[in-house]
C-alpha cells in the first residue's frame, strides 16, 4: 500500500482540563474523501485545526505524505502551504477584493508573479462562476459566493490535502447547494479531503468513508451506506436518529 496522504496516530488534545481528542487515529489515502460527522463538541473541528497545526497537540503524531509534521523542529508555515483549509465563517479578508484574497498566498508565500497568480485565480474563479466578482469586496457577496471564494483561495495554493470545516453551517439553506456542488467537483477531480459536516445527505453522496466522532473518539467508521444506513454502534444510531428527527437527513 502506498503512503497515505494523512496519517494521524494517537492524537490527544486537552482544552482547560477537558479532553477533546482521545488518542484518535485517522488515515486518509490519496484521492480519498473522508467525512467526519458527530455532534457539536465531538472534536471534528479540533481534529482539523490540529492537522493544520493551528492547535498544538497534547500527544500523538501527524504525518503528511510520510513526513512527520508534528516534530517540534518542523516549520509549521512550510507544512500549511501544502494543506488548504476552509472555515465555517469563510474568513475572507474584508479589506481585499476577491482577486487579491485569492492571489495573496500564491504571491507572498509561493512567490508567484502577480500576472501568473491573477491568471490562475481568474481561471479558478471562472470555474466557480465568480469571475465577474473578481473586483468586488467580500461584503458585497452572498454567503455562498463568499464560501466559494474561500474554497478557491485555498485551491490557488494547489494543496495536497483540503480540510473543510462545516463549510455550509453558516449559510442560508438556499445557498448550501452551490457550495456543496463545488465540493462535489473537487471530489470528482480526485482532491484528497477531510470534511466535517452536518449535511448527512451530502456526506452519503460525497464520502468514500464516514467517521462518526463522539467524545473525541472515532466511534465508528466505514463506507457511507453502512455507517449512515446501518450503523453498528448504538451511539451512532442514536445520533442519526436525532439528526433525522431534526429534519437534516
Amino acid at each position: 500500500m502506498s503512503t497515505p496522504v494523512l496519517d494521524c496516530r494517537g492524537l490527544r488534545k486537552v482544552f482547560r482540563g477537558e479532553v477533546v481528542l482521545h488518542e484518535l487515529d485517522l488515515t486518509v489515502a490519496e484521492h480519498e474523501a473522508v467525512v467526519l460527522i458527530g455532534a457539536s463538541g465531538s472534536g471534528k473541528s479540533t481534529l482539523l485545526r490540529c492537522v493544520n497545526l493551528l492547535e498544538p497537540l497534547d500527544d500523538g503524531s501527524i504525518h503528511l505524505d510520510g513526513e512527520h509534521i508534528t516534530d517540534p523542529r518542523t516549520d509549521p508555515d512550510r507544512v500549511r502551504r501544502r494543506i488548504g483549509m476552509v472555515f465555517q465563517s469563510y474568513n475572507l479578508f474584508p479589506h481585499l477584493n476577491v482577486l487579491d484574497n485569492v492571489t495573496l498566498a500564491p504571491r507572498r508565500v509561493h512567490a508567484v508573479s502577480r500576472a501568473r497568480a491573477e491568471a490562475e485565480a481568474m481561471r479558478l474563479l471562472e470555474r466557480v462562476g465568480l469571475a465577474g466578482k473578481a473586483r468586488e469586496y467580500p461584503d458585497r457577496l452572498s454567503g455562498g459566493q463568499q464560501q466559494r471564494v474561500a474554497i478557491v483561495r485555498s485551491l490557488a495554493c494547489a494543496p495536497r490535502l483540503m480540510l473543510l470545516d462545516e463549510v455550509t453551517s453558516a449559510l442560508d439553506p438556499e445557498l448550501v447547494g452551490e457550495v456543496l456542488s463545488l465540493v462535489r467537483e473537487l471530489r470528482a477531480d480526485g482532491m484528497t479531503m477531510v470534511i466535517a459536516t452536518h449535511e448527512m445527505g451530502f456526506a452519503r453522496e460525497v464520502a468514500d468513508r464516514v467517521c462518526f466522532l463522539d467524545g473525541g473518539r472515532i466511534v465508528e467508521q466505514g463506507p457511507p451506506e453502512q455507517v449512515l444506513g446501518d450503523p453498528r454502534e448504538p451511539r451512532t444510531r442514536q445520533f442519526l436518529e436525532r439528526v433525522l428527527a431534526a429534519g437534516r437527513l
Binding site: 485545526r49 493544520n52 493551528l54 509549521p76 508555515d77 512550510r78 500549511r80 502551504r81 494543506i83 488548504g84 483549509m85 472555515f87 474568513n91 475572507l92 479578508f93 495573496l104 498566498a105 507572498r108 508565500v109 509561493h110 474561500a150 483561495r153 485555498s154 495554493c157
Partner: peptide, 10 residues
Amino acid sequence: QRAAARSLGL
C-alpha cells in the same frame, strides 16, 4: 482572520 492567513501558509 489570523487563522485563515496562517492556514494559507503566511
